[in-house]
Design a protein around this nucleic acid. Structure first.
Lengths: 240, 240
DNA sequence: CGATCGTTTGAGTTTGATCAAATGTGGTGG
DNA sequence: CCACCACATTTGATCAAACTCAAACGATCG
């Protein structure tokens, strides 16, 4: 089984054998988290970088009055705080949505991976730029799209990103989110999430049952969500 | 007059004399843009990095059906595409909102500035992380806050960021945006922007007249917008 | 002096929120 | 095995924030 980070970076450029070894070696300290556990909390001092090996997590911020907004998903192969040595305190939290396996990287391990001019270091730089691009797209999503467009768009994004690390089976993937969580993602009430899911089902576009997202018609789902995968910068977009 | 980038980075750490010289030297090719002119367009091949010296610009994305969403403001001292050598195509556009003076940096100039372990290179890294943090905050803003909260929040952000580069006078600053543009920023209709501005005025919090933002009560404006400046990572938040 | 652009106001509509309750669906312990 | 609990989903009904449409008003400029 290929390391999810290696798989992810392969969409940017191929790593050398030595680099692949370095990635595999870096996943030394592995920990398991339960759903709901935080792997990083807003205001906390920044700790070591983390690399998600399996499961799904989310970045989020909470307002004083309790309203919570998820600002992005963290999927296998994604990292948090990789370049964060620079910042004193975390400006957002990261929480496990499903059971997660995460590797914690020491400062040296991070330096080891990201120094130099090789494909690995460039790839990590690329991954950071893609993260930024995704967050920008989310501003557009939440700001300008209707409920059903928003949901279709996020489903497409998750599908493309999971496919890029080989975590889809046919037209389905596991995203392990409740309707409440999806509401915190899409900036919709849980009730409206439910109705929008029904609408997607009625239009035979996709279903989400017990955390399993099944896409019936990816082309039409993309149209509905006005989803253009360019912002994910997967040069080799066929995935697999 | 201090270079806006030097001023901005001073909130992270002081630059050496040599580094300050390097920044000043890098602003060789300076160009002027009129409002509405793009300095970067979505889908275009990535060009040289740009550094805004004066004026105000915005990053935005447009949906197929014409709906436009501004995803962040570019203020003096901010850069675009600094680390973009990595990406083939731009995933968003950048447009001048006011008349702008911008410097274009060659690949070597960028490398010159960002290589090494000095305060300058670390500072640019810090600036990139802050940009990311701001975009995340915008997802929260657009997703979870009401019209007046959203507007208050963006006004606070602009004020803090402009103050950090010395572009405020007392409790006022120039932001040179129309109500339509503000709507594209806040994900509100122009009509509702107008009414929300009236509400801010009625509550004696702030006014926006002819592109000049005057804040009457920053403390209360922050409360209304649930604005906490931590996400801007201005270690020395007093500005000036 | 039109023309253009931005702001303001009014009226009616819509999307999605809120409130409340019913209906599953597992798990756990007696 | 069943009663019970916690949690997630679903449905119905009402409400409100913000949108849309339309028109008037005010600057600024060639």
């Amino acid at each position: 089984m290929t390391h999810p980070l290696v798989r992810k970076l392969s969409h940017f450029s191929a790593l050398s054998i030595a680099e692949i070894d370095a990635v595999n070696a870096a996943s030394g300290t592995v920990r398991t988290l339960d759903p709901g556990e935080d792997l990083m909390a807003e205001g906390q001092e920044t700790q070591g970088a983390k690399l998600l090996l399996a499961g799904i997590a989310c970045r989020y911020k909470t307002l004083e009055d309790g309203r919570r907004q998820i600002v992005s998903f963290v999927l296998p192969g994604d990292t948090t705080e990789l370049r964060v040595l620079t910042l004193r305190r975390a400006d957002h939290s990261v929480s496990a949505l499903s059971p997660c396996r995460i590797a914690t990287l020491s400062r040296e391990q991070v330096a080891n991976l990201s120094d130099g001019e090789g494909a690995l270091s460039q790839g990590l730089n690329w991954a950071a730029l893609v993260d930024e691009s995704i967050t920008r797209e989310w501003v557009v999503n939440v700001g300008r799209r209707t409920a059903i467009e928003r949901m279709a768009h996020v489903f497409c994004e998750l599908f493309y990103r999971l496919r890029a690390v080989g975590l889809t089976t046919g037209d389905a993937c596991h995203i392990h989110v409740t309707q409440v969580t999806l509401g915190e993602t899409l900036a919709l009430s849980a009730v409206h999430v439910n109705r929008t899911l029904q609408e997607l089902r009625r239009q035979e576009l996709a279903t989400l049952v017990a955390g399993k997202l099944a896409i019936y018609d990816l082309v039409r789902l993309q149209q509905v969500g006005m989803f253009n995968p360019d912002y994910l910068h997967l040069e080799n977009a066929t995935g697999a």
